[in-house]
């Protein structure tokens, strides 16, 4: 017989000389209760498992693995190739990486955010969470932390790896590290803001439907169509105020943010060409996050 709390009670055990026979019965729980922090931890771990396909069928693991590979393999290439062929002083700047990572973040958000919310709604699990020591706020905050941390693992770790790779590719790594230490907070800030941005929009979209495929399609549609429409309007309307359309294009946010934090132009993107003050992209991120929060409030926090 397998282990159980019941078996640990002495009165449930009969010794027969060669072995023990356990009588399995219900006992009141006398162990510790860890409160709300434990509830948070449980929901966060559960959400990670769902989003990453852990303890699920193999098809659920394909996309997360592919996306992690897509995020890390280029970085490993940027580090390994110069190291192998012996190019001295080679450096691929982390800010250039965020441009390609933003696409991976979008696909990751489209895949992971429905996994975190849609099933709980469709399968009506929410009353079980709310009837325990967990409020609607707790549930939503735990989901945001879970998705945000996954997004952070995709946005921050490759950039940090690239930064460390650049450091150790130099002839004098510690000298390079000393003179480029300001890169570290910039990488952290960019990764954090992008993670919050994608996680907030992803959860807001996922909260609108119980169908995971539809949620994913809507999120990608918002980024692609929203960006296309906004750019079209910007091009069509020849006016100073038409720059506001660029700020409403979610696909332009990462470029604008990199421009703001690193002071570098990644490419000839509209965010750069429009000549908008980069600080406005921070306001744009705040606007998208607030809008997402309002939607989540409407879907989850407003009672009855």
């Amino acid at each position: 017989m397998t282990g159980s709390t019941a078996e640990h009670q002495e009165d449930n055990v009969q010794s027969t000389g060669e072995g023990q026979v356990y009588r399995r019965k219900y006992n009141r729980y006398a162990g510790s209760r860890q409160g709300r922090a434990r509830s948070y931890g449980a929901v966060i771990f559960h959400s990670w498992r769902r989003a990453l396909g852990i303890r699920r069928k193999w098809t659920s693991k394909i996309l997360p693995i592919f996306l992690y590979v897509a995020a890390f393999v280029p970085v490993i290439g940027f580090i390994a190739v110069p190291a192998i062929i012996g190019v001295d002083g080679f450096e691929f700047e982390p800010y250039g990486l965020f441009s390609s990572l933003s696409l991976i973040l979008l696909v990751f958000a489209a895949a992971a955010s429905p996994e975190m919310l849609c099933d709980d709604r469709r399968e009506n699990v929410l009353p079980l969470y709310y009837s325990r020591g967990m409020t609607r706020w707790d549930y939503l905050a735990a989901k945001l932390i879970a998705l945000g941390s996954i997004m952070l693992s995709v946005s921050l770790l490759p950039a940090l790896l690239l930064f460390l790779g650049n450091t150790f590719l130099q002839d004098q790594p510690f000298s390079y590290l000393g003179s480029n230490l300001d890169q570290f907070p910039k990488i952290l800030a960019t990764a954090l803001l992008l993670s919050i941005f994608y996680a907030a929009i992803g959860l807001a979209v996922a909260s609108m439907t119980e169908r995971k495929g539809i949620a994913s399609a809507i999120l990608i549609g918002i980024f692609l169509a929203g960006t296309g429409i906004a750019e079209g309007l910007y091009q069509a309307i020849d006016s100073d105020w038409s720059q506001v359309f660029v700020l409403m294009a979610p696909g332009e946010i990462p470029e604008g943010l990199v421009q703001l934090i690193f002071g570098e132009n990644v490419s000839g993107s509209l965010a750069v060409r429009s000549g908008i003050e980069p600080i406005w992209f921070l306001a744009s991120i705040a606007g998208f996050v607030v809008l997402s929060a309002l939607l989540l409030y409407r879907r989850y926090l407003r009672e009855d």
């Binding site: 162990g31 510790s32 209760r33 860890q34 409160g35 509830s39 449980a42 325990r132 020591g133």
Partner: peptide, 9 residues
């Protein structure tokens, strides 16, 4: 999972 959400180790 529901036990953990209820605060059990």
């Amino acid at each position: 999972h529901m036990g953990e959400v209820s605060g059990l180790p």
